[in-house]
Amino acid sequence: MAKMTFDDYGHVMARYNRWQNDVLFKLCDQIGDEERRRDRGMFFKSIHATLNHLVHIDIRILGIMKTGEAPVYDAHGTVADDFDTLRQARRDLDAEIEAFVTSDDHDWQDGFREFTGVDGITRNLPRPLFLIQFFNHQTHHRSQITSELHKMGLDYGITDVPLTPDLPL
């Protein structure tokens, strides 16, 4: 690879995202349902609620990237109450993300989306910016969960993007 393009960025980050989510869900499976649902004082209170938030918002952002539209925003939306169902939703979504970023259709990168942020300001933003937000948002909330897992004595392991297994470069 002579240089890395925006498309390459999407490919790498989708693979990284899937890898990190697999690690996260394996660790969260080890702590059991009671610990996942315990109010830990996190922004979304529990690990389970934070995992739900990630899937919910990822569905929303993927919709923006695919169509320019998104489902109604609900910061506390629940995708799945059951952990196994939530894990499968995460796996399916990660596969959908990878398929989207590796597709030959790049027309979405030319689009804009009017977006009102949590600050109440409406902006007209290029849709590729949502790809960056997509992965940034995931990293932000995964770090909240990994911090809680660390407090419980679980080592999350490597998080370095260049060490992602099977990088598509």
Rank of each mutant, 00 (worst) to 15 (best):
R60N: 04
D74W: 10
I61T: 01
R60V: 03
D92K: 10
L86V: 05
D92Q: 12
F44E: 11
D81Y: 04
S103K: 15
H76G: 07
A75E: 13
F83C: 01
M65K: 00
D58E: 06
I59L: 15
G63I: 00
K45M: 08
L86Q: 04
N52S: 07
D58M: 02
V79G: 05
A99M: 15
M65C: 03
Q88R: 03
A75F: 08
R87I: 05
V72L: 13
L54R: 03
E98G: 14
D94I: 06
D74H: 11
L51N: 00
S46H: 12
T78G: 06
L51Q: 01
I47L: 09
A99P: 15
V72H: 12
I57Y: 00
V79H: 05
D94K: 06
V55N: 02
D110K: 14
V79S: 05
A49N: 14
G77C: 08
E98C: 14
S46D: 10
R87L: 06
L93W: 12
D107E: 13
M65Y: 01
D74G: 09
A75S: 13
R90F: 04
F83R: 01
A75Y: 11
T78K: 09
L51Y: 00
I47F: 08
T102E: 13
W108S: 14
L54Y: 04
H56R: 13
A89K: 06
I47R: 05
A80T: 10
L93N: 11
E96H: 13
K45R: 11
D94G: 07
Q109W: 09
I47C: 07
D82M: 08
N52R: 05
G63Q: 01
Q88W: 02
T67G: 02
N52T: 05
L62C: 02
I57S: 00
I57V: 03
H56T: 10
W108E: 12
A80S: 15
A49K: 11
F83T: 00
D81K: 04
E98P: 15
L51S: 01
F112V: 08
L62Q: 01
T102Y: 12
D92G: 09
T50F: 01
F83E: 02
F43V: 06
V72R: 12
K66C: 02
F43W: 09
F44R: 14
I97P: 12
G77L: 09
G68I: 02
R60L: 06
K45N: 11
F83P: 00
H48K: 05
S46L: 11
A99H: 14
M65R: 01
L62K: 02
E69M: 09
T67M: 02
A70P: 07
V101I: 15
E69P: 06
D107N: 15
L62S: 01
G63W: 01
I64W: 00
M65L: 05
E96M: 12
D92W: 12
A75H: 12
A75R: 14
T85M: 04
V55K: 01
E96R: 14
H106T: 07
P71M: 04
F100I: 09
I57R: 00
A70W: 07
D74E: 12
W108L: 13
W108A: 12
A95I: 12
H48A: 06
D107Y: 15
I97N: 13
L86H: 03
D84T: 06
V101P: 15
D58L: 03
F100V: 09
T102I: 08
F43N: 10
L62M: 02
S46R: 09
T78L: 11
D105Y: 10
